[in-house]
Amino acid sequence: MNRTVLALSLTAVLSVAAVTEAAAWTRSGSTSTPRGTYTSSAAGGCAGGTCSRSATTTGPYGGTVARSGSVTQTAPGTYNYNHTSTGPNGNSVNRSGTVSRY
């Protein structure tokens, strides 16, 4: 009996861990244009009611643009968001707010 309970508990923990890891993702790639090659990478995931994403793109001359943001559900149909973009010269733009369905 104790082994069965232990096995079921372990299975439940591993299942939750697999779901948590499955919510995380990464991507990378490159794009060639007449101006040169741009390389990009991004990562994101969800945990604790918040989903977030970050991404960077580097141009052919070394300039990098970075973007990051998150969305959190604060109530049914209501979400808070925060987004930051940083250009190759270090200037940033921040946006945040609340969105509701009604």
Rank of each mutant, 00 (worst) to 15 (best):
A23V: 04
Y61I: 04
N82G: 06
T20K: 10
R3N: 10
A43P: 03
G59T: 06
Y61Q: 13
A47N: 15
T26S: 08
S96L: 00
T56M: 03
G97N: 01
Y38S: 01
Y102N: 04
Q73L: 12
T11I: 13
A7D: 14
G48T: 11
V99A: 15
G48Q: 09
V5F: 11
C51A: 10
V13T: 12
T33F: 09
H83T: 13
G87L: 07
A55W: 08
L14Y: 02
P88I: 07
T74I: 00
G87F: 08
Y81Q: 03
E21T: 00
W25R: 00
R95M: 08
T4Q: 15
T4D: 15
T74S: 06
N82V: 07
G97F: 09
Y79E: 08
R95D: 11
N91P: 02
R35S: 09
A24M: 05
A47Y: 06
T72N: 05
S30R: 05
T20M: 06
A23G: 10
G63A: 07
S9G: 10
A23D: 12
N89W: 13
T56L: 05
V19S: 06
L6M: 14
M1R: 15
R53A: 01
S100L: 04
G45A: 13
S52R: 04
V99F: 07
T56G: 03
G69E: 10
G63W: 03
N82T: 08
G97Y: 06
E21P: 07
G69I: 10
